[in-house]
């Protein structure tokens, strides 16, 4: 019995003390714009891409993912969405079309991850205008990852790009067209899907880049559709009447999401789910 008591402080008290100290350190926030995060909530894009790569989709298999956006200050709704998505069969991953946070604060992004981290599938995000607020751009990069990136799943490449031109004072460089063109012109995957926050027909998209963006999409024969958030409501249309389909996501607050199924060269089906 004696050794038990002798080692009790080390075995019981020390871990508790360490946990307390650790959570105290996390609570010692220097500013709401302080973007520090625990290791498990850093580089979430890379973490989720690694998870996705661990369950590869065989070539020519049907792609199925959940499309949503604008989680902002709707944490209770995020919780309910996760519960609903976890009951959907055959879902491979989930995408959030930006505005993960409302005030561009790191803690807000982590609150959303606290819920989305409970998904049975990985999730991927793109930066929204609210994520740019204050020092949010840096927080997004710390907690999620790059502002422009792409990933391939099965036969499809997803091109995720920052289209929040107003947050850069319409500097003529958002979205980053050289990068977007390079991604769209690549021929190593069967299909392309491009996903961003602000749709090009929106007044928050840089008008100087609008035509170049629409043209690049029009000229990509592999593009299935373009996907956006920002408008907080579902929509599917061809705003430039050029054969390119634009799909907009529900916000979490609408308590609906879209299940996207893609097969063949460009065949797709969009199913709306209430939760």
């Amino acid at each position: 019995m004696l050794p038990f008591f002798r080692t009790l402080p080390a075995r019981a008290v020390l871990p508790v003390a360490a946990a307390l100290l650790l959570s105290a350190c996390e609570m010692l926030e220097f500013s709401p714009n302080d973007h520090r995060a625990p290791q498990e909530q850093r580089d979430l894009t890379a973490q989720n891409m690694a998870r996705l790569a661990a369950t590869p989709l065989p070539a020519s298999d049907t792609l199925r993912f959940v499309f949503t956006g604008d989680s902002q200050r709707f944490y209770d709704d995020v919780q309910d969405l996760v519960q609903s998505v976890n009951q959907q069969p055959g879902i491979q991953f989930l995408v959030v079309s930006g505005d993960i946070s409302d005030f561009g604060l790191g803690r807000e992004m982590r609150w959303v991850d606290d819920q989305l981290g409970k998904l049975r599938v990985p999730y991927l995000t793109v930066i929204g205008n609210h994520d740019h607020v204050a020092n949010g751009r840096d927080a997004y990069q710390e907690i999620f990852g790059p502002l422009n990136y792409s990933f391939v799943y099965g036969d499809t490449k997803f091109i995720m790009t920052d289209t929040n031109g107003r947050e850069y004072n319409f500097n003529g460089r958002i979205p980053d067209m050289p990068w977007v063109n390079q991604q769209l012109r690549a021929t190593d995957t069967r299909r392309h899907v491009i996903l961003s926050h602000v749709p090009p027909q929106d007044e928050d998209f840089d008008p100087a880049v609008r035509d170049a963006y629409a043209q690049a999409l029009r000229e990509d024969p592999r593009l299935v559709f373009e996907m956006n958030g920002h408008r907080h409501d579902y929509g599917i249309n061809q705003p430039f009447n050029d054969g390119v389909t634009y799909v907009n996501s529900y916000s979490f607050q609408k308590r609906r999401y879209v299940v996207v199924t893609v097969w063949g060269d460009k065949e797709f089906r969009l199913k709306q789910v209430n939760f």
Partner: peptide, 24 residues
């Protein structure tokens, strides 16, 4: 802070007081 408090007030299920607490 005011923003955290607002988020908590509107999301009492998903957020706890510990989520919004800041230590000095």
């Amino acid at each position: 802070n005011d923003l955290y408090l607002l988020s908590y007030a509107q999301n009492r299920r998903a957020l706890s007081l510990a989520d919004i607490a800041v230590l000095t």
